[in-house]
Design a binder for these strands. Structure first.
Lengths: 214, 214
DNA sequence: TCTATAATGAAACGATTGTTTCAAATAAAA
DNA sequence: TTTTATTTGAAACAATCGTTTCATTATAGA
């Protein structure tokens, strides 16, 4: 690791410009702390979570949190990315085991269905919740959500496109149009699943959604 | 108005039991205040709105708010009902002008589409937002949302049922199953509409949703 | 071992949170 | 006009908010 300690020494002694002395390092596991913070933010939302909640959940000192994450908002943004990459990993694993486009789409909906049924606290999807809570308040969150939406739709469009080439899916609409439809349907499913966790109801709902493609 | 002023006088002087003396009455327009509070809550969410915000928005004194609404949560519950009945009125007017079930469903989606396109602040639907923010935190909100969901699904089921009898809609699924599908699709549309307000995109999305019924 | 540097613990910061208090103002009924 | 019940205005409440401060502790490299 190379640290620039004092830029005024740029033309001076090279030893003072680049310091190789290393101080005390973080003692906590950053991923574990992020996971603990994620659970609190997921349960209470951003505005419903206090710094004290985060101190309690992570067992870190306030100063350590600020030293390592900067601010509540900054920590939340890291939490969002953490949550997102965890889900992406799940998705990608599910998609890797799919034989064709139809199975891939079904896998995506099934993963969401399982999350809903196992969500005993009725917290819903943290990304959907955050979108509804903060897009109109915080530009950095809006930007995150725009990127999330673009990535999701691109992924769905890719799958639909393949399905259409394989003639498994119809071409009544373009792959991009179907991708937006599926993206919207997933968000609807997550919202519906907050109060209705009946697996059969939701399976039938997913079934109806997917019929549009066949 | 009849006020029981002192129950210990129940068997005493009848005049002191029932008082007909009327005091100073509220000087503000309750509906107007509710509307002003609705705008703040809609914009910031429940946890993002402070009592000071409500004082500023309504121009009422804090004590008047507490005297008339009891608490922040209680005022919010009244705001939710206010918002809901405003939307119901819109819906019912739209439905009254519909000639058949197909038009009725299309009207519902069109009203939502117009709200999305006109929502310059990207606030989304307040009921959807509140569901995602508070169902897992506040039992009274959970109860409100359950009733809201039941009422919405009953209304949709009624329309679908008529459409199926008129043979405009298919019977691939029951009216109740289609109602849940439509309810979910509306929530998805509202979530999608927060970031995507392109009318053509959303029209095509609605089109795909409704195809399931035909 | 010594030195430089960052993480940590404890306390405090001013501002804001939701709510309460109470005297003053007010209006309907007597 | 007097009485009575309630709203209103202003101030204050304890508690909590997100954040900062700083002395102390700990560690990697010289």
């Amino acid at each position: 690791m190379i640290l620039i300690t004092n830029s005024s020494h740029f033309f001076g002694n090279f030893e003072t410009f680049i310091s190789l002395k290393m101080p005390k390092t973080e003692t906590f596991n950053r991923n574990q702390v992020l996971q603990q913070a994620t659970e609190v933010f997921h349960k209470n939302g951003y505005n419903g979570t206090s710094m004290q909640d985060l101190v309690d959940a992570t067992s870190l000192n306030r100063s350590s949190i600020y030293n390592s994450f900067g601010s509540k908002l900054n920590m939340f943004l890291e939490v969002l990315s953490h949550y997102q990459s965890y889900h992406n990993a799940n998705f990608n694993q599910g998609l890797a085991n799919s034989y064709n486009a139809k199975e891939a789409i079904e896998t995506i909906f099934e993963l969401n269905l399982n999350e809903i049924v196992n969500d005993n606290d009725r917290k819903g999807c943290m990304i959907v919740n955050c979108k509804s809570e903060m897009v109109n308040q915080e530009p950095s969150i809006k930007s995150f959500m725009e990127k999330n939406q673009d990535r999701m739709i691109a992924m769905l469009e890719d799958i639909v496109s393949k399905g259409q080439m394989e003639k498994i899916f119809n071409k009544d609409q373009t792959a991009n149009q179907y991708a937006l439809y599926l993206f919207s349907s997933i968000q609807g499913l997550r919202m519906t699943g907050i109060l209705n966790k009946n697996r059969e109801d939701l399976k039938s709902l997913i079934n109806t959604v997917l019929k549009a493609l066949y």
